[in-house]
Computed example of a mutant assay.
Amino acid sequence: MDYHAGDIVYVFYRNPHTQDVANIQAAAVVNNPENPGELALFLYETYYPLSNDMAIYTSEEEANEAYSYYYGDVTEGMLND
């Protein structure tokens, strides 16, 4: 998938304090300020370099379906804005 700065995508985010809990979180695709010419995800005031190892979804519906597949039923309001 080609991403462009300004795209909004959805990722699974694990709380660093409770690793057994994952949520769906919206993130912005941005120009990486640390590596010009590269893109990064901006999530919780942190830049994460885009890589093929990341599970990135282009819609909340797609993220919910994947979440259900990997973690079980998605409850309403799973997305943390």
Rank of each mutant, 00 (worst) to 15 (best):
H17E: 12
H17L: 06
H17F: 07
H17M: 07
H17S: 08
H17A: 07
H17G: 11
T18Y: 08
T18V: 07
T18G: 09
Q19C: 09
Q19P: 15
Q19R: 14
Q19F: 11
Q19L: 11
Q19I: 11
D20C: 09
D20N: 14
D20T: 15
D20E: 14
D20S: 13
D20W: 05
V21D: 15
V21I: 14
V21Q: 14
V21W: 06
V21R: 15
A22F: 03
A22G: 08
A22V: 08
A22K: 01
A22R: 01
A22W: 01
A22H: 04
A22Q: 09
N23G: 10
N23D: 12
N23I: 05
N23Y: 05
N23V: 07
N23A: 11
I24Q: 00
I24K: 00
I24D: 02
I24G: 01
I24L: 00
Q25G: 01
Q25T: 00
Q25R: 04
Q25N: 08
Q25K: 07
A26S: 12
A26M: 07
A26H: 04
A26R: 01
A27D: 00
A27G: 06
A27R: 02
A27S: 09
A27Y: 03
A27C: 10
A27V: 00
A27L: 02
A28G: 07
A28C: 07
A28D: 08
A28E: 10
A28L: 10
A28Q: 12
A28P: 10
V29P: 02
V29N: 03
V29Q: 00
V29K: 00
V29M: 02
V29L: 02
V30I: 07
V30F: 04
V30A: 05
N31T: 13
N31F: 05
N31E: 11
N31P: 08
N31L: 06
N32K: 07
N32Y: 06
N32T: 04
N32D: 10
N32I: 03
N32H: 08
P33W: 02
P33S: 02
P33L: 04
P33M: 03
P33Y: 00
P33C: 04
E34T: 14
E34M: 13
N35W: 13
N35R: 15
N35A: 15
N35C: 13
N35G: 12
N35H: 15
N35T: 14
P36V: 06
P36I: 06
G37Y: 07
G37H: 07
G37F: 04
G37I: 05
E38D: 15
E38M: 14
E38Y: 13
L39S: 06
L39F: 10
L39E: 02
L39D: 01
L39W: 05
A40C: 11
A40T: 01
A40H: 02
A40R: 01
L41H: 03
F42V: 03
F42Q: 04
F42I: 02
L43E: 01
L43S: 02
L43V: 05
L43C: 06
L43D: 00
Y44M: 11
Y44C: 08
Y44F: 15
Y44A: 10
E45L: 12
T46H: 13
T46S: 13
T46K: 15
T46G: 09
T46L: 13
Y47P: 05
Y47W: 09
Y47T: 09
Y47H: 15
Y48M: 11
Y48R: 10
Y48S: 08
Y48W: 08
P49G: 06
P49F: 06
P49K: 06
P49L: 05
L50M: 13
L50D: 02
L50C: 13
